[in-house]
Design a protein around this nucleic acid. Structure first.
Lengths: 193, 193
DNA sequence: ATCAATTTTCAATTATTTTTGAAAATTCTA
DNA sequence: TAGAATTTTCAAAAATAATTGAAAATTGAT
């Protein structure tokens, strides 16, 4: 095998590897409730060395202009891509966060805001709703079946609420701890458990 | 307001609160790529004091027999519900894990098996694919653009791989640490960061 | 202000996921 | 083993989510 040939496969194989990564990213994301095209677009930007414009995305991912536009805007909304202006070109260019840990923290922040916080709010609403029954019009002697059911339900809600609060607190730590927060946490956990 | 009346609202309000919880659980789950009915069924079992059978689920959630059957089996597959036999009744009954932390660890274990491990495997495949180019047929004097692209890509893959390996290791810790592992991790992280 | 380039929007279409329901399979009882 | 009760299966239907594409809006240069 000739050692000095500028391997003609290289380009093709790099491309294949990138393609695989993009596809993988899309599949993973869709398992986690994120639209496939959004994740593929993100992967494409992540892998690209220079910023890309809408047409680049359309061509490489074979999607419509509308889709590319919506998707890119969504990535901006999530805070994992940013606009870049290429001088001498009127088109908008986009680039993705390159630091994997920053990316992770951004995603965590967004999902916390979009899901954990509303979840907690609604759980508290449930709890108030059922709690307000408990203390009303009941005698001390507590073992009528209805009260028992109520108590059991309230316990479960409380467990769930403190669990979610725990997750929430943990997310805060991770989000704010600079650098490799998880790594730290894992090490500490390893020692402790 | 009469203090001693066995409040006639109580039943209704408890029911409403449970209903809200079930709905909430379903919505949350579907944000995370889990079928709504599956989560609702889980919530129902979680809230129920005694095990339920397929007909109970069908009635309470207003779904077909087929759906209830599939869903219950899926919950068994996930390991977050178990079969129970009610003596004197031929029907199968189901109950959900009641310990929220155990539930969490079970879900973590499953998602790790179903997603993190395949992800890692495929990432390594990508890496091998692109790595095999790098070392082939290139001279030391490395700055031709193709090699540079390759290097950049490999760096990104490596970052991603070590990130996912980190997550994987962390999941292992959490899964195995008995009891409130996350709580522990959060506390430690709080001290350390 | 005008106009061409570019981006955004959104109703209609297409793709994907979930659910249904009844037939087939299984299980339990006698 | 027969037969009723129960569960499972899966093709078809329904529901949901994502994408398209062309019209409308916006932008930036002159």
């Amino acid at each position: 095998m000739p050692e000095s040939t500028p391997n003609p496969d290289a380009e093709k194989r790099l491309h294949e590897s990138q393609e695989r990564f993009i596809t993988l990213w899309g599949q993973m994301a869709s398992n986690w409730g994120i639209p496939r095209t959004m994740a593929e677009t993100h992967a494409l930007l992540f892998l690209s060395d220079e910023p890309l414009n809408t047409d680049d995305v359309m061509e490489r991912l074979d999607v419509s202009r509308g889709s590319a536009s919506m998707t890119l805007r969504a990535l901006l909304d999530w805070g994992i891509a940013s606009r870049v202006h290429q001088r001498g070109d009127r088109k908008e260019y986009f680039q993705a966060e390159q630091d994997v840990w920053k990316l992770f923290r951004t995603l965590l922040r967004e999902r916390k805001k979009r899901e954990i916080e509303p979840l907690l709010a609604e759980l508290h609403t449930c709890r108030e709703l059922s709690d307000s029954i408990k203390t009303r019009g009941k005698r001390k002697r507590a073992l009528d079946p209805e009260t028992a059911r109520l108590k059991a339900f309230n316990y479960k809600l409380d467990d769930m609420i403190s669990f979610v609060e725990m997750i929430d607190a943990f997310s805060n730590r991770l989000m704010n701890s600079s650098g490799k927060g998880l790594e730290l946490a894992a090490k500490l956990l390893a020692k402790a458990s």
